[in-house]
Amino acid sequence: MPFSSLGLSSVLLNTLADQNFTEPSPIQAQCIPAILNKHDVLCIAKTGSGKTAGYVLPILMNLQQTLAVKNRHAHVLVLVPTRELAEQVAAVFKTFSKNLLQSVKTVAIYGGVSINPQMMALQGVHVAVATPGRLLELLNSNAVSLSAIETLILDEADKMLNLGFKEEMDKIISLLPKARQNILCSATLSKDLQNIHQLLLKNPIVIKIETEDGSLDLIKQVAYIVSNEKKGPFLRYLINHHEMKQVLIFASSVHQVDAIVNKLRKNNIDAKAVHSKKSQGSRTESLANFKSGKLRVLVATDLMARGIDISSLPFVINYELPRSPKDYIHRIGRTGRAASHGDAISLVSTNELDHFGIIQKKMGKQVELIDSEQIRIK
């Protein structure tokens, strides 16, 4: 099925061709017509399946009609859990809107940076991509109005609910016009998401392509039993032995992320950290360098992973296991994307073995488990 069969304009079709989009992904093939027809939509599909373009393209189409009538307030609100994802979603809107007859102004708004430039940027905005906390600050300062919002999107809705944004989101939603289109996007259908779906969506079209487990087929998984005190040297051995040029490493705390980076750098392995304690400028620079291949190793917490979207990342390493099996699946799902194979390696201490068994059961896959004591490291 080509994009031309979905009701998109010739301008958007040309932009898609310029960006080497040849045919829609399964989620795009179903989302685009549903959103074009102004239905509420619940979209459940694995990370990396093309959900963002699946809602951006039809929203831009619908905006072309809306913008023919002048209105100085934003028409579209996208709520996201992290600054990185805000930038990522805004970039997709800007990429696909650059040749449209009616120009579309998109602004990413998030905390951790000065609020004044964002206040100025919001003048004449059509699409606001926001984290809830900073949006509320701007609303309290009368820097933005939600009175003209026609479409609300909750992207990574499952993560937003888990991160405790409920109170902030309730306040924001109470300020929106009651007559609007609602779109929820998520990798999983959690109990919290089912509850908000029932509250927000009116006669929604539910699109569920596959569970996130389906993305594991392209990922070669292996785990090593390693004592906590030997994880550092063994990690360096893996990076050098496999000649890893681009590897994403996950740890469960800010402190552990920083400790890993310091050890790697002391051993002449170029590495940077991304976590909530880093400045926005530092995080943006590290992510950009990693995506472009200028940075060899990026070490991150689970929260930061939401802004790391690389089509052919070759390696992911779990320095320690996450508490949630879903987070494990999300971590290793950073690789094995866009039909590219990837390797996911986990360093498992003896006290994590039972938990790793639970993760494998939840995943429905057995992972090869190797005792690192059998491996001679230089």
Rank of each mutant, 00 (worst) to 15 (best):
R331I: 11
V367F: 08
C43D: 08
E229M: 07
L321S: 05
P33M: 09
A271H: 03
R331D: 13
L235F: 07
I370D: 02
A143V: 09
V113H: 07
T335Y: 08
G48H: 05
L313I: 06
A29E: 13
L298R: 00
L67R: 15
D371K: 08
R323S: 14
F96C: 10
D217E: 13
S49E: 09
V125A: 06
H197L: 10
P177V: 14
I329W: 05
E87G: 09
K202C: 15
G133T: 06
R134T: 00
V41Q: 00
A148W: 01
R376C: 04
R180Q: 09
K361S: 03
M169H: 04
I196D: 02
P117F: 11
H242S: 05
M169T: 08
T131V: 02
H275V: 11
S25C: 04
Q65N: 12
L12Q: 09
A148E: 07
Y55D: 04
G112D: 03
F96P: 15
D213T: 10
S324C: 02
Y55C: 08
A143Y: 03
T22V: 10
I207T: 12
L146K: 14
T284G: 15
V257N: 03
R296W: 13
R180V: 03
Y328V: 01
I377S: 04
K105C: 08
Y237F: 11
L122C: 05
V80G: 06
L77E: 00
V254K: 14
I44S: 01
A271E: 02
